[in-house]
């Protein structure tokens, strides 16, 4: 019984149960949704969002935000695809894509961590900057005719219907989760997000940690951009527009608190699956994809409101219990 309680107390468990309930609910309406292939495709299709959500989760855990990741995704996708189309080797193209992530991450990290500028405002600015760079780099044209081996890569299967992409990404997420929860440096992220001043006092390099979180976020978004170009096969200058909002939404769905210090990377990836399954679920339920944004918005609002209200309740209850305990002990003192 205790283990069950313990498992239920894990924050991302709520999201996981929600995911199962969602899938079961859809399965009841349309049982073909529950076929292994269809279920696995929900995970396979979430690969880009998983990377974005996990990347931004680093930043959100430290209590900041990064709204430029959609533009970073687009920029990295544009750079990688253009190089590949012009006949560069894969290594060069991938490296260039990842470098885009590093550089953009360093810029964001410098502004937020070192210059101490409110992160939403700063990354809004860099979002405009990076998005504009895509236009400058591509001249506003689409990048098309990517080499076939590259676009086929996204369809490569590892075992059964599981794509190699998702397997690799999943392995990375688990590794990152392990580093974040088990190693000393990994725990810095959550410590900084939970209480930045306290973290500084006990000797945690707050500025460094925030900086690193932005660089990691940039790299994850850039890799997401490379996978995006492989999956889609052509890049428009608006590629990744609005993805930052969906990635943030995925994190929130996965139980990560936007005030920082609460949540996990596994939660973020579960949230990403929920997020990217919405349109697929709509198809199975017989709705048009026009409901996509509406459902996403309702899901997001309902989950955060329920979470906030239950947290407020818990806080009030705790305070009452504390007061009651104090009154009790005082009574005991008086009687002595």
């Amino acid at each position: 019984m205790n283990t069950v309680k313990k498992i239920l107390k894990i924050r991302e468990m709520t999201s996981f149960l929600f995911l199962i309930a969602l899938f079961a609910g859809v399965g009841m309406v349309n049982s073909s949704f529950l076929s292994p292939t269809s279920l696995l495709n929900c995970f396979n299709d979430s690969v880009v969002f998983t990377l974005l959500a996990v990347g931004i989760a680093f930043v959100i855990l430290t209590g900041e935000i990064d709204v430029s990741i959609g533009a970073i995704l687009g920029l990295s996708a544009a750079v990688t695809s253009t190089l590949l189309r012009n006949g560069s080797s894969w290594a060069v193209a991938f490296l260039a894509g990842v470098m885009v992530g590093v550089v953009t991450g360093v810029i964001n990290g410098f502004g937020v961590a070192v210059l101490n500028i409110p992160s939403l405002i700063f990354t809004l600015g860099t979002m405009g900057l990076f998005r504009g760079m895509i236009y400058v780099y591509t001249g506003g044209a689409w990048v098309e005719n990517l080499p076939a081996p590259f676009t086929m890569l996204s369809k490569a299967k590892l075992v059964g219907d599981l794509t190699a992409f998702y397997a690799v990404v999943l392995a990375f997420v688990i590794l990152a989760h392990y580093i974040l929860t088990k190693t000393r440096r990994g725990k810095y992220f959550i410590a900084v997000g939970d209480n930045a001043a306290g973290a500084t006092l006990i000797g945690i390099p707050t500025v460094n940690t925030k900086f690193v979180s932005y660089v990691l976020c940039g790299v994850f978004s850039a890799v997401a951009g490379i996978l995006y170009s492989s999956r889609i096969g052509f890049i428009t200058p608006t590629a990744g527009n609005g993805y930052e909002m969906k990635a943030i939404a995925a994190c929130v769905l996965g139980g990560i608190s936007l005030t920082g210090g609460l949540g996990s990377l596994i939660g973020a990836s579960i949230g990403a699956v929920i997020m990217s399954s919405v349109s697929r679920i709509l198809v199975f339920l017989g709705f048009s994809s026009d409901y996509d944004n509406t459902i996403t918005g309702i899901l997001l609002i309902v989950i955060v409101v329920v979470d906030a209200v239950s947290q407020n309740r818990a806080a009030v209850k705790n305070r009452h219990m504390r007061l009651a305990a104090r009154a009790q002990s005082k009574k005991g003192d008086d009687q002595k």
């Binding site: 909002m245 939404a249 509406t294 918005g297 309702i298 997001l300």
Partner: peptide
């Protein structure tokens, strides 16, 4: 931020 993010999705939807 979260509410208006969700609101953005909801109202555009």
């Amino acid at each position: 931020m979260v509410v208006t993010l969700g609101g953005g999705f909801l109202y555009s939807g």
